[in-house]
Every structure is written in C-alpha cells, then in structure tokens.
Amino acid sequence: MRTLDEIRKLITARTDNPDQPVAGHHLWDSLVAAGITPTINLNSAGRALCIDLPDGTTIWITEQADICHPPSDHESWCAIHFHDPDDQGPYHLIYQGPGNLGITADTAACIEAIAAWITAHTASGAVARQNTYLALPETIPRDARRAAWMIGYAKPGFNGRHPAAPTNRHTPTHLDRHLDTGTERRGACLACAWEGPVRPHQNPAIEDALDHTHPGWRDLPTLPRSTSGKNSARLQAHRDATYPPHWFETGGPLKVWTSTANERHEAGQAPGGGYLIKVHQSEQTEDTSQQLSLL
C-alpha cells in the first residue's frame, strides 16, 4: 500500500520537469494540513484529487479535469460530491471558485466548503445535523445546501437560523433533505444521535421517531377529536383512564381519528406539547368509535 507521500508524487507537472510543484501539490498539502486525507483518481486525465467518505461516497476536486497546471495559471477549483462513484451520479456541486482569487485564497475557500460539507454529511442526530447545516458557508451552492439533512421547518428543535439545543429527555422530531429526485425524511431525536430510516413522507418518519422516544404508543387507543361541554369532560376522563400515567408530561403523543387520508401529524398539539397523531378511518367507523369512547 502506498504512503501519502508516495501518492502525492503521482501528481506530476505537464512540463519537461516532472518534479516542478503544481497546483495539485498545493491543494494536496492544504488538505492534509486541514486534517483531510486525499487520494488520487488515477483513471482521470488530470489526476483528480478525491476524498473518500465513510458511507462510500466521494468528493472529486479538479480545475477543468486537471490538477497538474502551474500555480500561476490557476483559476478556480471545482469540488463535486458524487453519491455513486461508479457512475458519477447523482452528485452535488459543493464548491466552484469565482476565478479571481488566486491559488492560495481559492484553495482555502475550497477546503472551508469541503470541511463544512463533510462535517454536515457525516453528522448524526437532529441537533448535530441542524447545527452543521447552519454552519455551511455561503460558497456552497443552494442546491447542495438543500441536500444536507436539517430539522423540518417549524418542527421540534427548529429555531430558524439559530442553533438547535439538545433536550433533557428523548424528544421526537424529523429531518428533511431536498434532492433532485424529491424530498426525503427521517425520524430523529433531540436528545441523542438516533436517526430512523429514510422515508418519502413526513408521517412515517414521525412515527419512527415516536417508536424511539415513546415505545408502546402504537398500542394506545385512538380517540375522537375534542368536543365542547359535557362530552369534552367525558372524553378527557376516558383519555386519562386509558393513557399511561404521566404520559403527556413526557411529551407523549395523542392519537385521534380523522376522516381525511394522509392528514399530517401535528407537533405540539397533544396535551403535554407532544404530537397529535392522525389516524384515518371511514366516517362510519369514526362515528362508531366516538360513540363507544364516550360511553
């Protein structure tokens, strides 16, 4: 296995003096100094530098498919995150230099974007995901920023451009990311690094999170929506009798019937501030359930 120094020597100048330092050497040395281990794609015409990530994806860095040009001729680095290195797609452009910075400033800006992107891409847990997303530099294009996981808008833990803070107890939320193929979601927790599987829709992601934070919630009864007057008091008494003691004090969800299919679960609408979970049934079944619950 080659050492880093041996791999670095594979970057050669396109001149009669192959030992002459080139832009790729400056980029290589700067990456190593930043704690990022690069490698070289030997199949690329210009010896593209690569950064292999733990999940099998990779970042390529070149200037117009070349890293072997003289530093004085350098214009701008281009860094692309390939999610499937075998066929080079899908991908996200995470840095494109403006072309007027010079080798030193452009390399520094490129590495800043790459380091922030790697941190965001390899983070785990809702708080870490949100805060690394907020820390992405403005040099990262909008499409790439949207492809990083973040807490869903207005969901538990979301606080605009302010950092998220961990909670003292397991608290469900969900993460979003927006790809060319559509939006993906996954359940997450505000107190730990747990994350659920990727889901195409919001409700299953929230339900995954509740499996983590409030196991057993699926076995609890589904109740009619609150009514006014005497029925309201009877419904509350029935709820208190069938849900576990102190359930809502821990942010536990409340399950209610809805006649609308795929109606979104609502954060903060359960008695203790937890999720209101919408369970779809037909009008007839809902009416029957309501009559039974109020007996």
Results as ranks from 00 to 15, higher is better:
N100Q: 10
G196T: 06
P200M: 03
L220C: 08
N131G: 08
S282K: 11
F158P: 05
L295C: 09
D208H: 07
Q290D: 11
D287S: 08
D16L: 04
A109D: 12
G268R: 15
L175S: 01
V279Y: 07
G157C: 10
L10S: 12
L294G: 04
N203A: 11
E286N: 11
C78R: 15
A48S: 15
P85A: 01
T171C: 07
Q64T: 15
D87P: 01
I151H: 01
C50K: 06
A48E: 13
E283R: 13
T58N: 13
A267G: 07
A165G: 10
A23P: 07
I103A: 09
D87R: 08
L190M: 10
T222H: 05
D55V: 04
I103K: 09
C192E: 09
T39K: 01
R146L: 11
D211F: 02
T58G: 08
D143C: 03
A261T: 13
A148M: 01
D73Q: 14
K278N: 14
P215T: 00
L254D: 01
L276Y: 06
L220D: 07
K255E: 15
A191T: 09
D211V: 06
I40T: 00
A108Q: 06
N262W: 14
S76I: 08
Y133S: 12
A193K: 14
A33D: 09
